[in-house]
Each structure stands twice: as C-alpha cells, then as structure tokens.
Simulated scan of single mutants.
Amino acid sequence: MARGKKFFQTTDNMTTKERIVLCVSEIGGTATLVFLGCMGCVSGIYGEKGKIPHEQISWTFGLAVMVAVQIFGHISGSHINPIVTVAAATLGNIPLIQVPIFFVGQFLGALLGFGLLKAVTPSQLLGNVYTNGPNGTLTKTLGVCSPAVNPLITPTQGFLVEFLITLILALVCCGVWDPKNSDKHDSVSIRFGFTIAVLAMAGGPYTGANMNPVRSFAPALFNGDWENHWVYWLGPLSAAFVGALFYRLVFMKERPPSEETLPEGVPLSQKA
C-alpha cells in the first residue's frame, strides 16, 4: 500500500449535479436488470402457465446485466447491486460518501423495475395465489421473482450458497478492477453477463441465486414474501466485503500516488 494512503476513501470532489447523475444512472441500470430479469420469470404470458426452464431464467438475468452495464457502465460504473458497491468501497475504488448514493439509486431502481413489470403484466400471472391446503387451510404460493430457499435445504445452507456464489461474483469484480488487468477491459459487459448466468445456473436450484439484496427486496415487497429474507441480505453483503478485503490484502498491488486517479470518474469497465 502506498505510504500515507488511507485504507478507505471518505470524500470526493463531485458536484451536486454529478451526484444526481450518478444516482439516476444506478436507478436506470437497476430498473433495467429487475424489469428484464423478472420478466423472464413470468409464466403463462403466451397461454397456459407452466414451469419456465431454469436455464432460460439464468440467461435472462445474465443478459439483463449485460444490457444494463452496456448502457450505464460508462456513467456510474453500473453497479446495479449493493454488493458491487460494497466491494468497490472496500477495494478503495469509490469513497464512502458515494455509497449511500449508489444504494439509494439501486433501491429506487429495483422498485421501479418491478413496478413497471407489474404495470404491463396481468395480475394473475404475477401475484400470489391462494390454494386450498390440508384441512381446508389456504396456502399462498410464491409470487413471481420472489426469493425463496429450496425447502430441501436449511436457511443456513441457503445463506452459505448465497455467500459463496456472491463471493465468486465479488472476486470477478475485483479482478476486473485490478490495475494489472487494465489492458483487458474489452467486452466487460459480456463477461459480467456470462458470470451472472453461470452462477445463476449453478446456485439457482438452491436459493434462486439472487446475489443482489435489492433484486430480492423489490419482489418480496410487492408480493409480501419475506420468509428467510435475511439470507438474501446477510449472505451477499458479507461475501462482498470479505471477498474484496481478501483480494485487496492478498492480490492487490496499490498504485504509487503519482499514478492514482479519481475513481469516481472512472466507469466499471475501466476501474482499477
């Protein structure tokens, strides 16, 4: 680490207008992700409802990330996920003062994205359905895109799955941002899209492989599905911090002061 450099940046030199642009970019990127990704989970829009292939859902979310990064990556870095913001702050790529701006944009974007999906989709294809259960009781089915741990595993195992797959995602981010990788930033949006797709294919049967607290929060809020919701916050956020901290301490070679740039002006596809 360069002598005299703080482990965490705290302030920046952005103007109020630049902060607003940063927030709006995250709103747009996260809304794009949630709208397209959750739209790919809607069954029955073409007729009879049925189970959507897991691979289709995984690719839809992966390609939605690709689209969001392609559109907004040069503006805010297109974090579109609090775990990316946590990893960036832990790595020292963004100052702590920017973290709430990213978070607000991501929350609003997720709510906007899922709200738009509800606006264009028949309610019977999105909302919870109550069916007759044992002894005449009503059983509520899970709403579209709501997070849920596979009943064959425990919530603790679900937490570990979300932690581990998010840890891999955080390490991918760190690898992209590493100064040693600065000459390999072509097609970053495609790389992130494929990363999300493969992690979703692997972890989806266990927990849905959300890896994104705001992507979990918006459907849960609209659908009222909160069971084991802590898994989708604690797992990803702790993995982001642990992964980025590990990468920074073990693999990262800090730049000399003369080579450092203001990170808030550098997009996701170019950050070191």
Rank of each mutant, 00 (worst) to 15 (best):
F8A: 00
Q9E: 13
T10D: 10
D12K: 00
T15M: 01
R19W: 05
I20N: 03
V21W: 11
C23P: 10
G29Q: 03
T30A: 01
A31V: 04
A31Q: 06
G37Y: 02
M39Y: 15
I45K: 12
E48K: 14
G50I: 10
K51V: 15
Q56S: 14
G62A: 05
G62E: 01
L63F: 15
A64M: 08
V65S: 03
I75Q: 11
S76A: 08
S78L: 08
I80K: 08
N81D: 11
V86H: 07
A87Y: 01
A88G: 06
T90H: 01
L91G: 12
I94N: 03
I101Y: 10
F103K: 05
G105P: 06
L111E: 08
T121I: 10
G127T: 11
G127R: 06
N128H: 07
P134D: 05
G136T: 03
T137F: 10
L138Y: 03
L138F: 09
L138I: 04
L138K: 10
T139D: 14
K140R: 15
K140L: 15
L142T: 15
V149R: 02
N150S: 07
E162L: 01
E162N: 05
L164E: 04
I165V: 12
L171M: 12
L171S: 06
G175A: 04
G175W: 06
V176R: 07
V188S: 05
V188F: 12
I196W: 02
A200M: 12
A202W: 01
G204Y: 02
G208S: 06
M211P: 12
P213W: 04
V214M: 10
R215H: 09
S216R: 02
A218D: 07
P219E: 00
E227W: 04
W230V: 04
Y232T: 01
W233D: 03
P236K: 04
Y247D: 02
E254I: 03
P267I: 02
A272V: 12
